[in-house]
Amino acid sequence: MPEQNGKTTIELRLRDAAQLFNSLDPFPFREGDLAAEAEEYILDWARDLPKDKPIAIVIHLERPDAPHKPLPDLATAITRWFAGRASAETRALHELFHDGRLAFMIGFVGLAGCLFLSWLLTRGQDGPFARVFQESLIIIGWVVIWRPAEMFLYDWVPILRRRKLYRRLAAANVEVRPPQA
């Protein structure tokens, strides 16, 4: 994990620039998709880097592209890719909270319904069967509200963690080093 100018560095060694992109993508640069293997490699390294330092990505090309073919703008392609992923995580977070609000309303109505039904059906009833029935409805009501609570308490944390990582990678300084003669 070398450092350059206060930035932690991720280094990639590629045969050529095309190896970085999805081969099925009809627009292989700027707008194109990174190859899943390349993305995962970068993400794995980035997760291990110190969280308080900026990231630099250095790409070593073993052989240049054909002379008639211009070298793609790898820096722009990589940073745009991760900026797009960060935006997708922001949308996922908004959707989670939207779905969570809907689930919470449904869960709250379900909990209230179970509590009311428990009270209504066991009103004036004594005995172990009435008590078991009452407690069962209360448990069902709390189970109905559990998933919305889980969404608001826990599910957003990994989304924020991924978004922060993608933003760091989108802001990374990307340097392409041609093969050494």
Results as ranks from 00 to 15, higher is better:
residue 108 F to H: 02
residue 108 F to Q: 04
residue 108 F to G: 08
residue 108 F to D: 02
residue 109 V to H: 02
residue 110 G to E: 05
residue 110 G to K: 02
residue 110 G to H: 00
residue 110 G to D: 06
residue 110 G to S: 07
residue 111 L to R: 03
residue 111 L to H: 03
residue 111 L to P: 02
residue 111 L to S: 04
residue 112 A to H: 01
residue 112 A to Y: 01
residue 112 A to S: 08
residue 115 L to M: 14
residue 115 L to F: 14
residue 115 L to N: 11
residue 115 L to R: 08
residue 115 L to K: 08
residue 116 F to C: 13
residue 116 F to M: 15
residue 117 L to R: 00
residue 118 S to T: 06
residue 118 S to K: 00
residue 118 S to P: 05
residue 119 W to L: 09
residue 119 W to S: 14
residue 120 L to Y: 15
residue 120 L to Q: 15
residue 121 L to I: 13
residue 121 L to F: 15
residue 121 L to P: 04
residue 122 T to E: 07
residue 122 T to G: 01
residue 122 T to N: 05
residue 122 T to C: 06
residue 123 R to L: 13
residue 123 R to T: 14
residue 123 R to N: 14
residue 123 R to V: 11
residue 124 G to D: 13
residue 124 G to T: 11
residue 124 G to S: 09
residue 124 G to C: 12
residue 124 G to K: 04
residue 125 Q to I: 06
residue 125 Q to W: 14
residue 125 Q to A: 11
residue 125 Q to L: 13
residue 125 Q to G: 02
residue 126 D to E: 14
residue 126 D to L: 13
residue 126 D to P: 00
residue 126 D to W: 07
residue 127 G to R: 07
residue 127 G to Y: 12
residue 128 P to E: 15
residue 128 P to N: 13
residue 128 P to Q: 14
residue 128 P to Y: 12
residue 128 P to K: 08
residue 128 P to L: 14
residue 129 F to G: 03
residue 129 F to Y: 07
residue 129 F to R: 02
residue 129 F to K: 00
residue 129 F to V: 10
residue 130 A to S: 10
residue 130 A to R: 03
residue 130 A to L: 08
residue 130 A to C: 08
residue 131 R to W: 09
residue 131 R to G: 06
residue 131 R to T: 13
residue 132 V to A: 09
residue 132 V to G: 04
residue 132 V to R: 04
residue 132 V to Y: 05
residue 133 F to G: 02
residue 133 F to R: 01
residue 134 Q to V: 02
residue 134 Q to E: 15
residue 134 Q to M: 11
residue 135 E to A: 12
residue 135 E to Y: 10
residue 136 S to D: 12
residue 136 S to P: 04
residue 136 S to H: 10
residue 136 S to I: 06
residue 137 L to F: 09
residue 137 L to C: 05
residue 137 L to R: 00
residue 138 I to H: 08
residue 138 I to L: 06
residue 138 I to Y: 08
residue 138 I to M: 11
residue 138 I to W: 11
residue 139 I to G: 03
residue 139 I to S: 07
residue 141 G to F: 02
residue 141 G to P: 02
residue 142 W to G: 03
residue 142 W to F: 15
residue 143 V to D: 01
residue 143 V to H: 01
residue 143 V to E: 02
residue 143 V to L: 09
residue 144 V to K: 01
residue 144 V to M: 07
residue 145 I to E: 12
residue 145 I to L: 15
residue 145 I to V: 15
residue 145 I to G: 00
residue 145 I to S: 08
residue 145 I to P: 01
residue 146 W to M: 09
residue 146 W to Q: 08
residue 146 W to R: 06
residue 147 R to D: 11
residue 147 R to Q: 06
residue 147 R to Y: 12
residue 148 P to N: 07
residue 148 P to T: 02
residue 148 P to V: 03
